[in-house]
Amino acid sequence: MHLKSLLVAVAALSVAAPALAADSLDARLDGLAKAWAHANFEIRDKAAQSEEAARVAAQAEGLAKQYPGRAEPLVWEAIALSTEAGAKGGLGGLALAKSAKGLLEQAERINPAALGDGSVYTSLGSLYAQVPGFPIGFGDPAKARAYLQKAVSANPNGVDSNYFWGDFLFRQGDYAGSVKALERAAAAPARPGREVADRGRHADVLNLLAQARRKAHG
């Protein structure tokens, strides 16, 4: 091969390598999303759900080590740990929730817009909303409100951002506000490749929406 041809080939490889790496990361993030959706929405047994969520979190942790400086694997690790925490409950669940919060804070410092759907804000807001407050845990309604409002601002038509905002408002006794948020969640557009997550989340939305409507009109 002539030197000029070799240089052209090397240049082409140097351009292609980052693109291939990006494709590999995107594919693996998609795999994490699907594995988490299966754990969170399709596994009903709490012990089995905890085990599967832990497996997803471990995969995300490995991906985060391969791609230091990228926020997306940290977000998925935190989301999986949150599912594991919910399945375990108790002090073990609280420790996992604290770990998830730390990962999300790290992701927020790197890229708060990671995953492009407000996931960092949604996940932090839901943790602050659902974890018990001091002295047991770190729950904080004011921080929950601030993060969930940021999530809705980042993704005004999203199913998750509006569901968790509606869930927070329901917990705060704002049933009319909860209905509005949950109606937006119910009308959220489908996400290609996220069919399991969409189906499971919409079931959550409709269940809570029915409760909020009863409360709002009761």
Score class of each variant (00 low, 15 high):
residue 36 W to C: 02
residue 35 A to G: 00
residue 16 A to N: 04
residue 195 E to T: 07
residue 144 A to E: 12
residue 211 Q to E: 15
residue 147 Y to T: 02
residue 5 S to C: 05
residue 180 K to S: 13
residue 132 P to A: 08
residue 16 A to M: 09
residue 139 G to C: 10
residue 58 A to F: 02
residue 153 S to M: 09
residue 218 G to H: 09
residue 58 A to K: 08
residue 97 A to F: 00
residue 100 A to I: 02
residue 128 Y to F: 13
residue 194 R to W: 02
residue 206 L to Q: 08
residue 160 D to Y: 12
residue 36 W to A: 10
residue 209 L to D: 07
residue 54 A to C: 03
residue 94 L to K: 06
residue 38 H to Q: 15
residue 80 A to K: 10
residue 157 N to I: 05
residue 91 L to A: 14
residue 9 A to N: 04
residue 215 K to S: 10
residue 107 A to G: 03
residue 115 L to I: 02
residue 8 V to M: 02
residue 123 S to I: 00
residue 216 A to G: 06
residue 153 S to N: 14
residue 87 A to Y: 07
residue 20 L to M: 09
residue 81 L to M: 13
residue 9 A to G: 09
residue 21 A to F: 03
residue 76 W to S: 00
residue 155 N to P: 02
residue 16 A to S: 13
residue 189 P to A: 06
residue 196 V to E: 12
residue 168 F to K: 14
residue 101 K to Y: 01
residue 106 Q to F: 14
residue 146 A to R: 07
residue 77 E to R: 12
residue 112 P to V: 08
residue 150 K to W: 04
residue 54 A to S: 12
residue 199 R to P: 02
residue 72 E to W: 01
residue 102 G to T: 08
residue 104 L to S: 02
residue 169 L to A: 08
residue 123 S to T: 03
residue 97 A to V: 09
residue 112 P to F: 15
residue 2 H to W: 00
residue 47 A to M: 09
residue 177 G to H: 04
residue 86 G to F: 04
residue 91 L to R: 10
residue 87 A to K: 12
residue 199 R to Q: 14
residue 11 A to L: 11
residue 49 Q to E: 09
residue 118 G to P: 05
residue 179 V to Y: 04
residue 155 N to R: 14
residue 178 S to F: 00
residue 158 G to C: 07
residue 208 L to V: 06
residue 51 E to H: 09
residue 61 E to Q: 06
residue 206 L to K: 12
residue 102 G to R: 12
residue 83 T to D: 13
residue 110 I to E: 13
residue 24 S to N: 11
residue 89 G to L: 06
residue 23 D to A: 15
residue 148 L to Q: 05
residue 218 G to V: 02
residue 74 L to Y: 11
residue 44 R to E: 14
residue 161 S to W: 08
residue 88 K to A: 11
residue 13 L to P: 07
residue 141 P to F: 14
residue 169 L to Y: 03
residue 55 R to W: 11
residue 59 Q to P: 00
residue 165 W to K: 08
residue 11 A to P: 10
residue 116 G to S: 05
residue 142 A to Q: 11
residue 102 G to K: 13
residue 7 L to A: 10
residue 210 A to P: 09
residue 57 A to F: 06
residue 61 E to A: 05
residue 199 R to D: 14
residue 149 Q to D: 13
residue 121 Y to S: 07
residue 126 S to T: 14
residue 15 V to S: 15
